[in-house]
């Protein structure tokens, strides 16, 4: 599906998604994931990923390929790629962040978390619940109590400087 390029010299890996699709990628691309790297070090060339669905895996393989070819000259190109990569829906972002977490790809994790954070900042709790389809499980009393605690003890902003 994704990469079928046969390169004899290069070590290849097969990744199997949660919905049983298989993807062949170069080992050097795959080992950017700590999870895959550990399996490769243990001698595996076939890597089942029961927590990663095909749709997310396709995107993540794209990401890994792009980032495996990082050089000094394609910095801008990768930045543009990353920007496009996260320009997607919340549901995609959540699927990707779970997958990136499972695969231990820290640069991707950080980028996705930052993106999600940027999108929920300045939003009211009600708006956040709507976006994430979260049912509020507080009683009105509990919610009022937390509001009060938040207002009472904490300053509006944490002053980052300690001077």
């Amino acid at each position: 599906m994704a990469s079928t390029t046969e390169t004899k010299q290069k070590k290849m890996l097969i990744l199997k998604s949660a919905d049983n699709d298989e993807f062949e990628i170069e080992e050097s691309v795959g080992v950017q994931s700590e999870t895959i790297k550990n399996l490769v070090e243990d001698g595996f060339t076939f890597v089942p990923l029961p927590n990663v669905y095909t749709k997310a895996l396709i995107k993540i393989i794209d990401y890994l390929k792009k980032h495996a070819n990082k050089t000094d000259s394609n910095d801008e190109e990768i930045k543009t790629f990353d920007k496009d990569f996260v320009n997607t829906t919340f549901d995609d972002l959540f699927e990707l962040v779970s997958a990136a977490n499972y695969l231990h790809i820290s640069c991707l994790m950080n980028m996705l978390c930052q993106t999600i954070a940027d999108r929920i900042k300045d939003k009211s709790p009600e708006a956040v619940r709507k976006i994430f389809h979260i049912n509020c499980d507080y009683t009105p009393e509990e919610e009022a109590k937390i509001r009060k605690a938040n207002a009472q003890a904490f300053e509006g902003q944490f002053d980052e400087s300690l001077d």
Binding site: R129, F132, N135, C136, D137, N150, G156
Partner: peptide, 10 residues
């Protein structure tokens, strides 16, 4: 401030 609001979500 955002974290405070997040604590009110659920």
């Amino acid at each position: 401030g955002d974290r405070k609001r997040c604590s009110l979500v659920c």
